[in-house]
């Protein structure tokens, strides 16, 4: 995978006007994944929406990282349940026909 699949922490922090310490803290809390390449730390691109959502929750709602971790966990569960509802609805539809 080339560098186009990652964004350097420094670039991300500049564009969002935050300190890189905050991103490292998110990583320590297990909220986002980071990877290291040649002494630079990167955020994988697929993690970007998650990282941005965390920033919004942190800055808009002033929720601390523990709270964000709980919210993320519950939102993941809701998403899984919604997928399951769709799956079951489709299954039910199969037997209703």
């Amino acid at each position: 995978m080339g560098n186009e699949h990652y964004i350097a922490i420094t670039d991300f922090c500049i564009s969002h006007n935050i300190s890189s310490k905050f991103i490292l803290e998110l990583h320590d809390y297990g909220l986002i994944e980071l990877i290291s390449m040649e002494k630079t730390r990167y955020i994988p691109l697929q993690q970007l929406p998650r990282a941005e959502k965390i920033l919004r929750l942190y800055s808009d709602l002033e929720i601390n990282l523990e709270g964000i971790a709980v919210i993320n966990h519950l939102l993941d569960r809701i998403e899984k349940m919604q997928d399951e509802i769709i799956f079951l609805k489709n299954k039910l539809h199969l037997y209703e026909e």
Binding site: R56, D60, L61, E62, L75
Partner: peptide, 14 residues
């Protein structure tokens, strides 16, 4: 504001 924003924030209510 905080109380209501936490309840209705779009990221919490996709």
């Amino acid at each position: 504001y905080r109380k209501l924003a936490r309840k209705y924030h779009p990221d919490i209510n996709p």
